[in-house]
């Protein structure tokens, strides 16, 4: 359950103050599937960063599963990210020197889980993405679609409740893009809350909720 109330986010650009988000309210129920759409600079990436606890709003309240997050210390926010939120980026952000399996293992390693438990969960996450035969490949040995599916496996290996995807198909061709969308939607069907930021009309149409943004505010929901 996500509840945003009166979220403000301002950036200082030169001597000008830019309002990336102004007085934004948004509620997402568990298992929601929302596409955030809008032109560049409309504040959709800022919204995603705030939802992912990577950024703090200047004003307003953000309750994640009933926990007020805006005033939590960084340590606690890192822990919430680790346990409840998964990220999928446009540029994949896989670590090039690690294999697919090791990249997927990363969040579990950071959480300090025991090795045996890690191995099982990594195997399961890779299997779910159909990547078991690719487990020992490094990112440069994988196709774009495979890389993004490794990233999805990494985002879901800790079984978070919320998956945030920033232009997940932006660097992919149509066919691999469709694969990735199918994978994300399958996860949503299992109950994961899915928020996708996209320019892609085709992708946006598939979501149950379409949130159109412009100039830091929600135009239509």
């Amino acid at each position: 359950m996500i509840e945003l109330h009166g979220i403000e986010r301002r950036f200082q650009v030169g001597d000008q103050v830019v309002h990336a988000l102004r007085d934004l309210d948004l509620t997402l129920a568990d298992g929601d599937y929302a596409a955030v759409m809008g032109p560049s600079g409309s504040g959709k990436s800022t919204l995603l960063n705030i939802l992912g606890l990577l950024d703090r709003p200047d004003a307003g309240s953000y309750r994640l599963d009933g926990i007020e997050t805006t005033r939590l210390p960084e340590e606690r926010r890192a822990r919430l990210r680790r346990e409840r939120i998964g990220f999928v980026f446009q540029a994949f952000h896989l670590i090039p020197r690690l294999t697919a399996a090791e990249n997927v293992e990363l969040p579990l390693t950071l959480a300090g889980r025991p090795v045996r438990e890690r191995r099982q969960q990594v195997a399961a996450a890779l299997e779910a993405m159909g990547l078991t035969p690719r487990a020992d490949h490094r990112p440069d040995q994988l196709s774009g679609g495979q890389r993004q599916r490794v990233a999805i496996a990494r985002a879901t290996v800790t079984r978070p409740g919320l998956l945030l995807a920033d232009e997940p198909t932006g660097n992919l061709d149509r066919a691999s893009g469709d694969d990735v969308i199918a994978a994300l939607e399958a996860l949503n069907a299992q109950g994961l809350t899915l928020v996708v930021v996209t320019h892609d009309q085709h992708l946006g149409e598939r979501a149950r909720r379409r949130i159109h943004m412009d100039d830091g505010a929600v135009l239509a929901d």
């Binding site: 960084e74 890192a78 990210r81 346990e83 952000h93 670590i95 990363l106 950071l110 959480a111 990494r154």
Partner: peptide, 10 residues
């Protein structure tokens, strides 16, 4: 940045 997004503490 990625490590932090994945929940790494300072």
């Amino acid at each position: 940045g990625l490590l932090k997004a994945l929940g790494a503490r300072q």
